[in-house]
Write a protein that binds this DNA or RNA. Structure first.
Lengths: 132, 132
DNA sequence: CTGAATCCGCTCCGATACTG
DNA sequence: CAGTATCGGAGCGGATTCAG
C-alpha cells in the first residue's frame, strides 16, 4: 500500500520543488533546449549546422545546451577523428520519444498564430478601455 | 500534411528568429508557463490554489505568467464579484489542446528519471576519467 | 570546426510594501 | 484574496578570445 509520506523527495512529480523530476523539467522546459531537440528531429546534425538551423542561438548557449542534453542522455555526441574536427549530434532513444511532445508544441504554435494575435489585440483593447 | 523537406535551410516556423511564431514559442517554452498549464489540466483553479500546486513559484512570477497566458488566449481569467475577491483560472479551448503536449513532456520526465540519473553518472564519470 | 573561459551588460526574479 | 509597483541582487546570456 502506498502510505502518505510527508517527505517530498519521494514524489517524482514535476509539480514539486526540489525534486529530481523538477530539476530535469527545468532543463527541458527551456527555449534553446526545446528548439535544439526540435531541430534534431530532422536527423543527425553537425554543430555548425545546428547553429544555423536554430536561429538566434549564440555559440555559447548552443554549446551549453548541448552539454546539458548530452549529460541527461537526451542527445548523443559523436566525434569524428578528422581534421578539422567534425562533431555531430543526434537524439537518443528516449530523446526521440521526447521529440514527439516537442514537435506537438511547435506544431501547436504554428497552428494558433492567428488565434493568439487576435487574443492579444482583444486583451490589449480591453485593457486600454478599462484603465482610462 | 507534414512536408518533410530534405534541407531544413528554409524553416518557416519556430526555428526562425524574429517571427511571431518564435515570440509565442518563447512565452510557452518557459518553466512556469508550462507548469501552470499542466496544473490547470486538472481543472479550474483559484489563484491561491495555483500558488500551492505549482511549488516554488513566487507570487510575482505566477501573476506575470498568468497575465501572459491570458493575453495569448491560453488561459481564461474569471472574477467573482464577492468579498473577499475570488478569481479562478482555466484553460481555453486552444489551451486544452496545448495541454496534451505539456502533459506529454511532464509524463516523459516522470518516466525517464532513472534513465537520466544513470546517464548523468556515466557522463560525469567519463569526464573525470578523461581529465585525469 | 568545435569548445572552453572570461568579461560584463542586462534582464529576470524574489522580497517587500501598498491598494482594492 | 488578488494584483500592482518598486528596488536590488543574482544569474542569464552575448561578444570575444584562445586552445585543440
Amino acid at each position: 500500500m502506498s502510505n502518505q509520506v510527508e517527505s517530498p523527495a519521494e514524489a517524482p512529480d514535476v509539480m514539486r520543488a526540489n525534486t529530481v523530476a523538477r530539476e530535469m523539467f527545468d532543463r527541458i522546459a527551456d527555449r534553446w533546449a526545446l528548439l535544439v531537440i526540435n531541430a534534431l528531429g530532422a536527423g543527425t546534425l553537425r554543430f555548425s549546422r545546428l547553429h544555423e538551423v536554430v536561429e538566434g542561438v549564440s555559440h555559447k548557449m548552443l554549446t551549453q545546451t548541448l552539454r546539458g542534453l548530452e549529460r541527461d542522455g537526451i542527445v548523443r555526441r559523436r566525434v569524428h577523428p578528422t581534421s578539422p574536427p567534425r562533431v555531430d549530434y543526434a537524439l537518443t532513444g528516449p530523446g526521440a520519444e521526447l521529440l514527439r511532445a516537442v514537435t506537438a508544441i511547435c506544431g501547436w504554435t504554428r497552428d494558433h498564430i492567428t488565434h493568439i494575435e487576435t487574443a492579444r489585440e482583444e486583451f490589449d483593447a480591453r485593457r486600454s478601455a478599462e484603465v482610462r
